[in-house]
Computed example of a mutant assay.
Amino acid sequence: MPATSPRPVTLTGRHVRVEPLTPAHLDDLFAAGGNDDDVWRWLGTPTPRTPQELASKLDALLADASYVPFAVVHLETGGAVGWTTYMDVDAANERLEIGSTWYGRAHWRTAVNTETKLLLLAHAFEDLGMGRVQLKTDHLNERSQQAIARLGARREGVLRRHRRRPDGSWRDTVYFSLLADEWPEAKKRLAARL
């Protein structure tokens, strides 16, 4: 039986709530990561310098039916601190990608990413019936590669000259994946880290 395609859903942990992204999140998101080159450096899109520029990115994401976008809300403050998506969904082949993720710099190396990924991975494997979840990043983004590896995902390889960066240079993309039979052990490690 094939997996189920994801729909907007709210997932709540101890530190974050992952909820459907809406324009109402814009002010929090801009405060968290707008006009910060380090936040946007590896996302393949120019840094939003104004709330209007971030609104354009948010609107484009919401208009693209190939994404299921989520705001990541920090429960302690109640504010959105980043966004993430399910993308490249292929329910017939039981796979999807978690990507287009960013968090404000104040939330790097905190429980935010670990718990967000724990919630999204659990939903993908346990509720939607996915057999594979993929994640990918720029080969120069070592911080992201380390974070993905800490999730328990395996590095699969590199697509060379995969995508043009905003500065015109070419990005090689590192692919990682986690399979359904690897998920129980990865889930235990992630839960322990929290």
Rank of each mutant, 00 (worst) to 15 (best):
V133S: 09
G168R: 11
A153F: 07
E97I: 00
L21E: 04
G104D: 07
D172W: 02
N141A: 08
Y67W: 11
P6T: 01
E94K: 00
R105H: 10
E126V: 02
G129H: 08
T12V: 13
S177A: 14
Q146V: 09
P51C: 10
A32R: 04
Q146E: 14
V68I: 15
N113W: 13
A91Y: 10
M130C: 05
T116F: 05
P46M: 01
H107L: 13
L135I: 12
T22K: 04
D59S: 11
L61D: 03
A60R: 14
T12Q: 14
S66W: 08
T85E: 03
A71T: 07
P166C: 08
G131I: 05
R132P: 09
G78Y: 03
A80K: 12
A186I: 04
V68R: 08
T114I: 01
Y86S: 02
V9D: 00
N35Y: 00
D37G: 13
R143C: 07
H139E: 14
R95A: 03
P6D: 12
L190R: 15
D38Y: 04
A192F: 04
E19A: 15
P166K: 05
A149C: 01
L128P: 10
S5W: 01
P48E: 03
T173F: 10
L43G: 03
Q52G: 11
S66K: 14
R143K: 15
G78T: 04
A60I: 03
L121M: 15
L54I: 04
E97F: 00
G44F: 08
R41P: 00
M1V: 07
R160M: 05
E94R: 12
V133N: 11
L43E: 02
A80E: 03
V89I: 15
W183F: 06
W108E: 11
D90F: 13
R49Q: 12
L61E: 08
A91M: 12
T114W: 00
R165V: 07
A63F: 02
L58Y: 01
T22S: 15
N35P: 04
V89P: 12
D37E: 15
G104F: 08
A24V: 03
A31M: 05
Y103R: 14
T50M: 08
T45I: 15
T47F: 11
T110R: 02
E156G: 00
T137G: 14
N93T: 06
T50F: 12
V16C: 02
R163Q: 14
H139V: 09
T47C: 12
Q145L: 12
L151I: 11
A63Y: 01
T173D: 10
D59R: 02
L151M: 14
T10K: 12
A124T: 07
L75E: 07
K188Y: 04
W42S: 11
T116K: 00
G157P: 01
E97Q: 06
N141K: 11
K187M: 08
G157W: 01
Y67A: 07
R150H: 15
A60S: 13
K187H: 14
L118G: 06
